[in-house]
Each structure stands twice: as C-alpha cells, then as structure tokens.
Design a protein around this nucleic acid. Structure first.
Length: 203
DNA sequence: CCCTGATTCGC
DNA sequence: GCGAATCAGG
C-alpha cells in the first residue's frame, strides 16, 4: 500500500480531529494497522495531540474549582463531538489523473483481493435499522463495517453487528459481499444494476 | 484484559 | 519511508 496524498490528508484530518490511531487505521482500510498510522503520523510531524493519554505530555490543567461537584456538571468529553459523517470532507479530487487509480474510498473500502470468480456485490438494499446508528466513531475490529445508506445522507451509518471472524463484515453481509458470481445465463431476472438505465440485457 | 500512543528497529 | 514488534501508561 502506498501513502497517497488522499490518504495522508485523511490521516492528518482524522488525527487532528482526535480520532484514535486504530479508528483511523480502520477507516483508511487496506489492512492498515494502527501502528502504521501512528508511525506515519509521527513521520508527518503530528504527535501527541489532545488525547486522553499522558505519555510524555501530561495535562497541565488542574481543576481549580473542586469545592463542590454540581450534579448537572457537564463533562467535556475528551473526544470531539461526533460530527456527522457526511460533514467530513471527502477529498476526492484526484491530483494525479492516473487511469484506473485504485483510490480507496474514505469509507467502506471494498475488499481488496477477491478470489477469481468472486466479486463484491454492488450495493445491497440494506435494511435500515431504526434508531441506532453506528458511525465512524464506533468502528472496531470486530464490528461489521458494512455501510448503510449513502455517506452524504445524514443518517449514514454502519451495520455494526459482530463480524465474521477474519472478515470486515458480519456473517450476513459477508454473504452479500463475497457472493460468487454466477454465470450470466444462469441469472434469471438479473440483479439490479448499480448505475445507469436498465439497458436491455445482451443475450 | 481491554485500550491508548511512543519508540525501536529491521526491512 | 514503512510498519511490526515492542514498550509504557491508563
């Protein structure tokens, strides 16, 4: 994997936003480890920002007014307020108009290497859960990163169910993501096409 | 144990 | 330059 300008920009952005290295690693995908993120961040000159860690950098802040704790004391979370995912600027301008440049999308990176005969399904008609939203902040190693909705929509979120071990998705979405590609003539009606008008299928 | 970032060190 | 291994703290 290479640190493209897009990735570095994303790294900087997320890092400055206060995301943890592991979160950034998972957002950027491509098997990036949190160590890689930290290492790169270091090399970029970013380091030890408002993070609830105090290695080498303690908080010189002391709560002077400690007299009485107000019951309704609002606690400023160390993490920045969870901005809507859609608000995050998605740097898509490809400075290098390379043909077929494999630029990983900022969200929901498709599984990179698929076995021949396998191909990721375009976009599932994902059942939208009501109420709950799994945002970028909630992404872990072990929750399903299947995107629900469109990143531009305010309610864009992720599946969030426990993953199928070894996969970035839960079992259900692994079935969708790693569907075996059937021979065309065996496909009866044909699956919905992601883009473009429904052209008459070649026969 | 889980998590976090920092640093080292071989590639 | 990169990142896994390792370290150190919470």
């Amino acid at each position: 994997m290479a640190w493209t300008d897009e990735r570095i920009a994303l790294l900087k952005q997320y890092w400055e936003e206060g995301r943890s290295a592991s979160q950034i690693a998972e957002i950027l995908g491509e098997g990036l480890s949190r160590n890689a993120v930290i290492g790169k961040a270091h090399r970029l000159g970013l380091a030890s920002r408002p993070s609830p860690l105090k290695t080498g950098e303690a908080k010189a802040e002391s709560k002077a007014p400690k007299a009485e704790a107000k019951p309704a004391a609002p606690k400023p979370a160390p993490r920045p307020a969870p901005q809507p995912v859609a608000a995050a600027p998605a740097p898509q301008p490809a400075p290098t108009p390379v043909v077929a440049a494999p630029v990983a999308p900022p969200v929901a990176p498709a599984p990179a290497a698929l076995s021949p005969g396998l191909q990721p399904a375009p976009r599932p008609a994902a059942p939208r859960g009501k109420g709950e939203r799994v945002t970028l902040l909630d992404l872990n190693d072990r929750i399903c990163k299947w995107p629900i909705g469109h990143p531009d929509e305010p309610d864009f979120h992720f599946c969030g169910k426990p993953v199928n071990p070894g996969f970035p998705y839960c079992g259900e979405h692994c079935l969708v993501a790693y569907q075996a590609q059937m021979p065309r003539r065996d496909r009866p009606g044909g699956p919905p096409r992601p883009f473009g008008p429904n052209l008459p299928r070649p026969r």
